Simulated scan of single mutants.
Amino acid sequence: MTDWWLWMYVAAMAGGVALFTRWRADPRGVPLSEYRVAIAIPFWSGLWYLVMALGGGRAEVAGHTVYWARYADWVVTAPLLLVALMLTGTHSLPGRRWRLMTALVGANVVMILSGLVADLTTDGTARYTLYAIGVLALLVVYGLVWGPLRAHARRQPAGIAAVYTEAALLLSVLWAGYPVFWILGPSGVGLLGSTTTSVLLVGLSILSKVGWSIVDLGRLRALSDRGHLTVV
């Protein structure tokens, strides 16, 4: 059953690549860089889930299967999602906020690597300590998204600022599911089995990657259709 869900995920990512490639051919005022990011996310993620669907990208640790390929996916795609969010949050503003972007990506990478090392650790105390570090890193990401980046977004026209708020809220809600499923699954207290956890993570990841990008790009394209989007 798990493998079936993995193949479904690969198909969903392929569909995302096809959709965003089609949208890129008719950008409707949205910068091509945003389409490149949107295409790269499901492409990279789909490759790693293809590895898992074929039986790779996993290891047995402390009696449960660790899908390390998920982390190889997340360590690239999660920062790219933040790049996409930042492009929306600063769309009509001149210049790039490199320090803010570095802080966002840095905290995000700490969160993901903490989860990976925790998954590979057999000592319970060390595992939950690393999990706590990952959760704190996620809170830092939330603080940056809803603090300085939101402040930049509010300096934009109301329509674009509203798109940022919607995209940030959706991403924040979806990302909250990852630490919840981790702690409830085999890596944590074990209330959820390996198959159930895999299915939940597959659904969550489809929504977080392809679903979120559809909302973000779709709202920007709609603004352009109404003449409220300007390429800078």
Rank of each mutant, 00 (worst) to 15 (best):
D3N: 12
W5L: 15
V10K: 05
A11F: 14
A11I: 12
A12M: 11
A18K: 05
A18N: 06
T21R: 13
R22G: 09
P27K: 06
R28W: 02
V30W: 08
Y35K: 00
V37Y: 05
A38F: 03
F43P: 03
S45M: 06
G46W: 06
W48V: 05
L50W: 13
G55Y: 06
R58Q: 15
G63I: 09
R70K: 11
Y71C: 10
W74T: 05
W74M: 11
P79Y: 01
P79F: 00
M86L: 14
G89P: 06
W98L: 14
R99Y: 10
R99I: 05
L100V: 06
V105C: 07
A107M: 01
A107P: 02
N108V: 00
V109H: 03
V109W: 01
M111I: 01
G115E: 02
G115W: 07
L116P: 14
V117Y: 08
A118C: 05
L120I: 06
D123S: 15
D123R: 13
D123W: 05
G124V: 09
T125K: 11
I133Q: 01
V135G: 04
L138A: 14
L139F: 10
V141Q: 12
G143I: 08
L144C: 07
W146M: 12
G147E: 08
L149G: 03
R150L: 10
R150Y: 09
A151E: 12
H152T: 01
H152N: 06
R154N: 15
Q156N: 01
A158M: 07
A161L: 05
A162H: 09
E166W: 05
E166I: 13
A167F: 08
A167D: 10
A168P: 03
A168H: 03
L169R: 13
L170N: 03
A176F: 15
P179A: 04
L184C: 14
P186T: 10
G190M: 01
L192I: 07
G193A: 13
T196L: 08
T197P: 10
V199L: 12
V202L: 11
S205W: 02
K209F: 12
V210L: 07
I214L: 14
D216C: 15
L217D: 03
L217A: 07
L220V: 07
L220R: 09
R221P: 11
A222W: 11
D225Y: 00
R226G: 04
L229F: 03
